[in-house]
Design a protein around this nucleic acid. Structure first.
Lengths: 335, 335
DNA sequence: TTGAAAGCGCTAACAA
DNA sequence: TTGTTAGCGCTTTCAA
């Protein structure tokens, strides 16, 4: 690699001091002769000079970079969030560093540390919940936004949806449509608030509707667990009108493959509903009944909180709930 | 923000020099007393010291960061690429900065410049094709990988698929299955090699099969353009067995919505095929015939080229073609 | 209107 | 085994 052009080189070539070049770079033209300005502009263009943001950041203690950690960039939730977040930050002149934790707390911790080392000015993350102490420390030094995880960390912000309420609402509506059994398919929920909340919402609805809850635990990537769950669904469907309700779009996707092969009449023999709204929700036949999360709004809000804070504004910390809504599709219907 | 702990603070508290602390930080324990090491470790833990990667990067001329610019993070191609790319780089200890160009050449240029200012050590991008001169300059200074765009830029790498060949193959197979008309739906292809290649492949197949090409231009987000295209499809379908072949998964998605409403018998009255393999390809009924791109492999290869180069290895530049394959689904069938 | 010089936090000769 | 010191490229204070 050839040595890069520096501000020194520019100053020398333009016959001025580095101070003057620095002033030029930062747009402080007010006290600078027209001639000097033009000369510097010409030299910069000629030399193809690119300022070193590292040096600038080191000196100015500002990197104009924000870090985001998501579980997995391919999850629709994460993509939607990241896009809105990235756009909002970009408009305010910030760059985004993205990393994936895969839900692993140790990896998450490493990623946060590496972001801190790179002096990101703020962090947004889908945390596992096992780094809350560390995040509490961090939140005193920089804006920390918890996404999709409603942990109460002092000085931090949390943005999530009303998982429990909307999940209760969905289950309730399914019962109301005349489904006697609503079989809830979820991954292991322990320690993951979004999952426990959705599950609890379902259980609450069962309690209120005086129905027996049927919860099947599945593991993504483990077809056997789905087969077992669907066998249970089949048993229910024999006895009475039954609906499957999956805890998120990824569980639904794996479920849906097997489900179709079984040849149920949807929505009459079997209703299908899910948390999350996959982008193929209205492409399958019948279109899916689902819970639509305001993902873009979450990303935008996270970005707004951060840019406001970095502008020096006070923003009250706490947990922000952006409500989801139930979207009724043809995959469920009244008896 | 309170002033951050520096290596100086650590050195002072541990009663050693900054050099020793620096050695400790970089794992050069070989010539360091057990006692010193422990002392430093203790002080670092106590002070919650986090090294400043900016200062390190400034001095060492290495940031261990790589930049990626994609058109849109929500496109399946981009997500798939980014994940594999990010994973490969992460394993080699590099961070990733991600940005979206939305296909705009000016914005792309700005993003590249900002990456350069931040001293990323390499760049991978889906370029618009309008910054090739600039990229050629850049490629002399750092590894530059063109993704999904086969421009021949000296010293740069390009990773793409055999768009034209596999598109010809797809169209050919459709004719072979007994579809008399194969209507090709594409967005405006001008200046975008992937699109022109796919279109040309289709046209070649028509030539060889002695069929009249039917190309309909659509614009995503413009339902009217799709209605018009599908009206043409309907006209063809009246006369003879017809298939729709869309130039990418996003075009298919918009197309599919309207298509279903029209109530064709798929695959008999109408065949459906597409470039790209949406994640819902096997969830709809019948499952889609499509062109599967080796997206993960592209991301991995891009990552490998970059890490190899940054390790100091020579990697011959040029255009790398990772072949796609036609996946036959139930949405097309023999007469 | 311009410049000299100190220093941001770190690394790596070189010296001891 | 450890320390002194000269920068990396930039901003900014103070002086001219």
């Amino acid at each position: 690699m050839p040595k890069r052009t520096t501000i020194q080189d520019v100053a020398r070539a333009a016959g001025v001091s580095v101070t003057t070049v620095s002033r030029y770079l930062n747009g402080r033209y007010d006290s600078m002769s027209e001639k000097t300005r033009e000369k510097i502009a010409a030299v910069i263009a000629e030399l193809g000079y690119r300022p070193n943001a590292l040096a600038k950041g080191l000196k100015a203690q500002r990197t104009e970079t924000v870090g985001a950690i998501v579980v997995n960039m391919s999850y629709p939730f994460c993509v939607g969030f990241l896009r809105a977040f990235s756009r909002t930050l970009g408009e305010a002149g910030y760059h985004l560093m993205v990393a994936e934790s895969e839900g692993d707390a140790r990896r998450e911790r490493q990623l946060i540390e590496s972001f801190v080392a790179n002096r990101v000015e703020a962090i947004a993350l889908q945390t596992s919940g096992d780094n809350n102490d560390y995040l509490a420390d961090l939140a005193r030094e920089m804006p920390v936004v918890l996404v999709d995880r409603a942990f109460a960390i002092p000085n931090a912000y949390a943005i999530g949806t009303n998982n429990r309420d909307v999940s209760r609402e969905m289950a309730w509506q399914l019962f109301d449509l005349g489904y006697h059994w609503v079989v809830y398919l979820t991954e292991d929920a322990r320690g993951i608030p979004t999952r426990t909340d959705r599950l609890e919402g379902y259980l609450e609805a069962c309690r209120v509707a005086l129905r027996e809850p049927v919860v099947m635990r599945v593991r993504r990537g483990d077809p056997a667990s789905f087969r077992k769950a669907l066998a249970h669904v089949a048993a229910c469907a024999c006895k009475a009108r039954t609906a499957v309700y999956t805890a998120n779009g990824l569980v639904l996707m794996e479920c849906y493959r097997s489900l179709r092969a079984l040849g149920y009449q949807v929505p009459d023999q079997l209703g299908i509903a899910t948390f999350d709204e996959p982008d193929w929700a209205d492409l399958v036949d019948p279109p899916l009944t689902c819970v639509r999360q305001p993902v873009e709004q979450m990303g935008e809000t996270a970005g707004q909180i951060i840019t406001a804070r970095l502008r020096g504004e006070e923003v009250a910390s706490g947990i922000l709930v952006v409500p989801s809504s139930v979207v009724m599709g043809g995959s469920t219907a009244r008896d």
